[in-house]
Amino acid sequence: MVEPIFDYQFRLILIGDSTVGKSSLLKYFTDGKFAELSDPTVGVDFFARLIEVKNGTRIKLQLWDTAGQERFRSITKSYYRNSVGALLVYDICNRTSFENIPQWMVDARRHIEPHRPVFALVGCKADLVSNGGHREVSQEEAKSFAEKNGLFNIETSAKNGMNVEEAFKAVTQEVYNRIQTGEYKVEDGWDGIKTGFARPNGLDFNLVEAEPAKTSCC
């Protein structure tokens, strides 16, 4: 009668320079919407969505959308620790944002230690390039960096939704695979991975599940 609505909760954190599009990416992923204008994130914001990995295991993603602004840097670093995955987000039309990725990665790695998170390199605003915008980061560059550091890499657009789903799915699957191999474990005092808890059926949890175009009702 009562079944868990998710089997695991993964905490993923999105880091990267200000205005690269972290919040927009998350908004599209959880809400299916794109906001032309949005306020800069203060500290950290939270999103959540249910996603299924290949064997049908239901995963609740708790997504920490950190502020990219320099002034929050010290604060956001304190949020890294409990993450099992980190999306390194840059703007393919902003060379600097890509060049700062190694620093973001090092910070994340250091703060998440001793845990070793799954990293993904996510280029944003791919729609701008196809609309005649100026690409500052080539796919090859990104690919070579990712291969060098063992990262998953993908280019996305929060405006048309291109690869948004895939980016999160890839990270989630990798985390799940590492659970399966025994590399990751549910640990007390670490909130990167939690087991799901039972909830009754038929209730609204404000989690938009796999239907991006739908708004949550509350």
Partner: peptide
Amino acid sequence: AKKVVNYEALFDDHQGLVHLEALEML
């Protein structure tokens, strides 16, 4: 059935819990 999804679950759904957790971190 509804009682199982009590206040705590709804509070969590509205991100109250995670904000509190983040505040604890701070």
